[in-house]
C-alpha cells in the first residue's frame, strides 16, 4: 500500500519522500481565483493559504523535484460544485496544473468530471471524498464517468470498505482510504458548513462549525436523566481537535487490496507532515505482526505521536482496534 502525503510547499517534497511518502496530493488557489471568489469559494476543499500553493510556478517546481524522486503529485480541484462562471477558469487551471507536471487530478463535481472526460485530458481522474461513493453501484457509476481512483468516504467501516473492494477490483478502480488526521464529524460531501475563519492565511480547527461550542437545548419527552446523558453526547465534538488515526485497520486494508493510504492535513506544518509519514511508514513495516500485537503497537504509536490515548472520537475505524 502506498503512503499518500499532503503537500503545500515545494521545500516539503524531498524530506517527505525521504521519510517514506510514495505519492503527494496538493491544492492550488491562485491570486486570480482568490480575487474573484475568495477562500469562501475556494477552488478546492481547503479554504486558507497555508494549505495551498498559490502559483503554478511553485507547483511546477514541486512536481519537478517529486518527478526526480519518481513520486507522482496529484492536485485537488474538489469544490462541491463549480458555477458556469467558475468552470472555464477551473478547466484552464487544471490544464495549467497538467502542464506543471501533476499526474492525477482529484475532482468532486460530477459536471467537471464529465467535461474532463470529454476533453480527454490525458491524466487519471480520482474521485474526491467530497463526492461520496458508499456503495458498489456508485463505484460502477463513477467508473462509467471515466474515473480511475476513488477516495473512499471517511464514514465507512472496515467491513464496508472490504465489501466494496471486490467491486472496485472488478471495475479496475484504485481505492484510497483515510489513515491519519482530520476525522470530520460530518460526511465531507454532505457537509455544507463553510470552512471559513477570521484569517484567510489559516483556518483553525476551533473555527469550524462542527467543533464550535453550541448552547444545546434538548427536545424530548424522555426522563430528565436520559435527556442529560443524550445532551452530553450531542456536545461530544465541541471544542475537540481533529487528530485521528486509522492505523489499526491497515492489516484489513492490505487484505482488501486498498491501493493508497491517505494522510490528511495539507495545512499542517512540515514537521507534523514528516512525523505522520514516518508514523505510517513504521506501521506498515510491522504489518506482518499477529493482529493483537499489531494493534497494541498502533496504540503505542498513537500515544507517542499524538500524546493521548486512543478513544472513539480519535479513531477512524473503532471496530478494528478499540476494545
Amino acid at each position: 500500500m502506498k503512503i499518500l502525503s499532503p503537500l503545500s510547499k515545494t521545500a516539503e517534497v524531498k524530506p517527505l519522500a525521504v521519510a517514506g511518502a510514495d505519492e503527494f496530493y496538493c491544492g492550488i488557489v491562485t491570486v486570480e481565483w482568490e480575487k474573484r471568489f475568495s477562500f469562501i469559494a475556494s477552488s478546492n476543499l481547503r479554504h486558507d493559504r497555508v494549505a495551498n500553493f498559490s502559483s503554478f510556478d511553485q507547483l511546477a517546481e514541486a512536481t519537478k523535484i517529486a518527478s526526480s524522486l519518481k513520486k507522482p503529485v496529484f492536485c485537488a480541484f474538489n469544490a462541491h460544485f463549480y458555477s458556469e462562471k467558475q468552470m472555464p477558469l477551473t478547466l484552464k487551471q487544471i490544464s495549467q496544473a497538467i502542464d506543471a507536471g501533476i499526474s492525477k487530478v482529484i475532482v468532486s463535481d460530477i459536471s467537471l468530471i464529465s467535461l474532463l472526460k470529454e476533453q480527454n485530458i490525458g491524466i487519471d481522474i480520482a474521485l474526491s471524498t467530497a463526492n461520496p461513493a458508499f456503495n458498489s453501484e456508485s463505484l460502477a457509476f463513477f467508473k462509467e464517468q471515466g474515473l480511475q481512483r476513488i477516495v473512499l468516504p471517511r464514514h465507512l467501516t472496515v467491513e464496508e470498505i472490504a465489501g466494496l473492494a471486490p467491486s472496485a477490483k472488478a471495475l479496475n478502480l484504485e481505492l484510497e482510504a483515510f489513515a491519519l488526521n482530520a476525522l470530520c464529524p460530518f460526511i465531507d460531501g454532505l457537509c455544507t458548513f463553510q470552512h471559513v475563519g477570521k484569517d484567510p492565511n489559516f483556518v483553525s480547527a476551533q473555527e469550524l462549525a462542527c467543533r464550535m461550542p453550541f448552547e444545546v437545548e434538548t427536545i424530548s419527552s424522555q426522563p430528565k436523566q436520559k435527556q442529560l446523558s443524550a445532551k452530553s453526547k450531542a456536545c461530544l465534538w465541541q471544542n475537540t481537535l481533529p487528530d485521528a488515526c486509522g492505523l489499526c485497520a491497515l492489516p484489513s486494508f492490505q487484505k482488501a487490496g486498498i491501493h493508497s493510504l491517505k494522510i490528511a492535513g495539507r495545512g499542517n506544518s512540515t514537521e507534523k507532515k514528516l512525523a505522520d509519514v514516518k508514523m505510517l511508514k513504521q506501521a506498515l513495516s510491522i504489518l506482518s505482526l499477529p493482529q493483537k500485537e499489531f494493534v497494541q503497537e498502533m496504540h503505542r504509536l498513537f500515544f507517542k505521536s499524538f500524546y493521548q490515548t486512543c478513544s472513539s472520537s480519535k479513531c477512524y475505524y473503532p471496530g478494528e482496534g478499540l476494545a
Binding site: 464514514h155 460526511i187 457537509c191 436520559k226 446523558s229 450531542a234 472520537s313 471496530g319
Partner: peptide
C-alpha cells in the same frame, strides 16, 4: 446543512455510551 454516519443520536440517553462515537 450536513449529515453524518457517526450519529450522535445513536444510543443517546445511555450514560455508558455518552462518550462513544462511530
Amino acid at each position: 446543512v450536513a449529515a453524518t454516519r457517526m450519529c450522535l443520536l445513536a444510543n443517546a440517553g445511555k450514560i455508558s455510551a455518552s462518550k462513544e462515537v462511530g
